[in-house]
Nucleic acid binder design. Sequence first.
DNA 1: TTAATTACCTGAGAGC
DNA 2: TGCTCTCAGGTAATTA
Length: 261
Amino acid sequence: MPELPEVEAVVNGLQNTVIGKKIVSLKAKRPKIIVGDAEQDLGKIRNVLRRGKYIILEANAIIIIHLRMTGKLLLVDRKVKERKYVRAVFLFDDDKKLLFDDVRAFGTIVIKQDQQEYFPIQKLGPEPLLKNFNFDYFAKKIENRKVPIKNILLDQTVLAGLGNIYTNEILHRAQIDPRKSANKLKKKQLQKLISETKNVMKEAIAAGGTTISDFRDLSGKSGNFQKKLEVYQKKYCRCGNKITRIKQAGRSTFFCAKCQK
DNA sequence: TTAATTACCTGAGAGC
DNA sequence: TGCTCTCAGGTAATTA
């Protein structure tokens, strides 16, 4: 499931391969995958950006891609046979095509004339690795929030890019109980949470992301950060204590009740 | 305003 | 072997 580091790996791959390519056509293979006018002349890709978990292709229009759960972008030769989970195809003016492959069909491609027109991107919180994600910002954001801190970390309007795997790992490293109300965190815990968020993101990006089931980068390569996971889908903590598994906001939370307070 | 719940989607695995 | 059920989870929409 692609989160910020995985999307970063895909964007890096796209920057090295598709900038300058002209999009000849963009075709959906099933309904509701593409929102907006895919028939227009999309022109050359001038730039590729990431914002949170969104991939942004700048061409004659702005093409905003979200991989959701199982989405993948694969750059292949035109002659390559497409498997049945390919949901959309970008055809370029050379011998390549970009496949949007997505088993669960949750992912979307939105076409807008201007990035600012796309409301979900406007609402996103700061990027974890930028300076504006800091103690003052985060303390203000959570001062009246009674929901569990894990839910806050998953809230893209508070912080852009985190998903279930990394929130589990960040809270474990920061030794914070994921059930703890956000407004009950002590100053030191908040500082630790911010620094571990930045550390985990940096390490995961350097490792090329996490591959649990099906994440692949543009060339089909897996990430490596799964080797560093300490709680997500684990049975025992490093301390020897059994990992507790609960449901929060409809998703699995893994934590060590001994280390995380 | 905030919080909780549900729909979307399909393959994998468990249980019978 | 084949059927049914449950689970995985990011986001938007709906409800409380």
